[in-house]
């Protein structure tokens, strides 16, 4: 190999490694805040009326966030029910808690579909959608993955990672909870995390 070729190879390798690494560092920086600095994971999405929503929209309230999709008849309804119940219980105790459902399937989950869907659950859940890019950004920030899985009948499902994320009244990410818990199991965990948190 000529020296000039070797140089180009080295440059190509360096670029090939550096770009993915830069992405990783960026994500790690978003995921793991330095001590004392609040971990902010904001997003811009749309509510069922088409209005822009960011974390500031819920300013002053705790937020419990769940990513899912309505074409998910088995697991997602149970998770939404649990989230709604926990929010209602907290409200009854005087805590301002807003449960938020972000769809990972904006293609099928139009604002109208989302509106009808969330109205079937307690807790006054807010449904949010957006462009693929906006939703992709939000899921990445919360360490959530989703992937389209085609079905033999031409339809598709969305495989997705699952969990409830808690966000403080000042918009700081607190922690994530498993989404396969019952409401009476999730409630004390969320309440404990809220009481231990200082904004």
């Amino acid at each position: 190999m000529k020296p000039s070729n070797r140089l180009w190879l080295a440059v190509a390798c360096a670029v090939g490694i550096a770009f993915p690494l830069a992405g990783l560092w960026h994500e790690l920086a978003e995921r793991a805040p330095s001590a004392g600095k609040p971990d902010r994971r904001d997003f811009t999405l749309s509510d069922v009326d088409g209005k822009d929503v960011t974390l500031a929209t819920f300013g002053g309230k705790w937020v419990l966030l769940y990513f899912g999709y309505t074409f998910c008849p088995d697991i997602c309804p149970t998770s939404l029910q649990v989230m709604g119940e926990v929010a209602d219980t907290l409200r009854a105790r005087g805590e301002a808690m807003q449960p938020v459902f972000i769809t990972v399937d904006p293609e099928r989950d139009t604002p109208q579909v989302l509106r009808d869907y969330v109205s079937n659950f307690g807790g006054a859940i807010v449904g949010l959608t957006g462009s693929i890019e906006q939703i992709g950004g939000a899921t990445r920030r919360y360490g959530t993955f989703f992937q389209k899985q085609p079905m033999p009948n031409g339809s598709y499902m969305m495989n997705h990672s699952s969990g409830f994320s808690l966000i403080s009244p000042k918009g700081a990410y607190v922690r994530v909870f498993r989404s396969d818990l019952e409401a009476n199991e999730l409630f004390p965990e969320v309440e404990e995390a809220m009481h231990a948190w200082k904004d």
Binding site: D74, S161, S162, G163
Partner: peptide
């Protein structure tokens, strides 16, 4: 219009359904 047996599962934190 279409009914089939599925199983929901969680693998490495990913929720999915398989026929």
């Amino acid at each position: 219009g279409d009914a089939s047996v599925h199983e929901s599962s969680e693998k490495e934190g990913m929720m999915s359904m398989e026929p």
